[in-house]
């Protein structure tokens, strides 16, 4: 049934319709709704509770979380530094040679080296080779006589730097070791393929083995050990010595001697070092023999 709406014809009708039960009910509900909100803040509570329920699924954004992330980034960065240092420290502590030491520290990394460990590494080197790093008497003074507190080892591009520092962090002595130096120190006694005649520095000072040993045995017995300070590398060779060369330069009181071996797979030269004054004595004998 369709009821046709019509405009009230009288004020009474207007009032009756305006204040109908439905209108009054809607009005009261709305008023209650508004006043109860002002009185009890239920809307705030409702929204607040809803947001509490969704809290865990919301993103960690905003200033306070950003600060937390910055803290986390900072810790990550610091831990990286510490971890790199720790790795370098372990590598250094496990190092058995200076080569291991250099290989264990990357450029920009540094680690404190114990005095005892440096001493051990130094003592593994043959004396003439050790001199390339530091004069033994100077090391004795540094380790036992000076105000040395620790040895600071820093990795640099192409090698390492060793700082001997006192308790005020002042550098008493600095040693720069390039990778080439270290390789030379470590591999100094390894044979090199080739002939003495092809090597610079021996020119005019190459002698046949027989002549060399004849001249050597003419020397007083107490001088001979000083001519072959480290004969181990020679004794390890199976081939036959053909020629011996004397280097034309002195290094830390030693002169390099090259022994040319004839091996089954070609010629090889083994280097050893002899005390300068002993080699000089030998040279006199060799020249005398030549004359």
């Amino acid at each position: 049934m369709i009821r046709q709406w019509y405009e009230p014809l009288s004020a009474y009708e207007w009032l009756r319709r305006t204040f109908s039960f439905l209108n009054i009910a809607v009005f009261i509900i709305t008023a209650t709704f508004i006043f109860s909100e002002f009185r009890f803040d239920w809307f705030e509570n409702l929204v607040g509770s809803y947001l509490v329920s969704t809290n865990d699924s919301r993103p960690e954004t905003g200033a306070i979380w950003e600060a937390g992330k910055q803290t986390s980034n900072a810790h990550k960065y610091l831990n990286e530094i510490i971890s790199k240092k720790e790795n370098a420290r372990q590598n250094v502590h496990q190092a058995a040679t200076f080569f291991d030491l250099a290989a264990g520290i990357l450029p920009g990394e540094w680690v404190t080296l114990e005095k005892q460990q440096f001493r051990t590494l130094y003592l593994t080197l043959e004396k003439s080779v050790a001199l390339k790093i530091i004069e033994s008497s100077q090391l004795v003074w540094l380790l036992n006589g000076s105000s040395l507190d620790r040895i600071f080892c820093e990795g640099v591009t192409g090698g390492i730097k060793l700082y001997f520092i006192d308790s005020d962090n002042r550098v008493i002595k600095q040693i720069d070791l390039s990778r080439e130096d270290i390789l030379e120190i470590e591999d100094g006694e390894k044979p090199v393929s080739g002939e003495l005649a092809d090597m610079e520095g021996f020119s005019g000072r190459i002698y046949p083995a027989r002549n060399f040993f004849d001249a050597l045995f003419k020397l007083p017995a107490d001088i001979i050990p000083d001519l072959m300070v480290n004969p181990e590398s020679l004794l390890k060779q199976n081939g036959k010595i053909i020629n011996i060369g004397i280097w034309n330069e002195t290094e830390n009181g030693y002169i390099k001697l090259g022994f040319e071996f004839e091996e089954t797979d070609g010629k090889q030269v083994v280097f050893i070092k002899g005390r300068e004054w002993a080699v000089w004595q030998l040279s006199l004998n060799l020249r005398g023999d030549e004359n």
């Binding site: 809290n55 954004t61 306070i64």
Partner: peptide
């Protein structure tokens, strides 16, 4: 409320956590 709520930041719990900073 529903629209904005999904982008709202998470609130730390307890609130005092906001003061803990190295």
């Amino acid at each position: 409320v529903f629209y904005a709520a999904k982008d709202l930041p998470k609130l730390p719990s307890p609130l005092s956590r906001i003061i803990e900073r190295p």
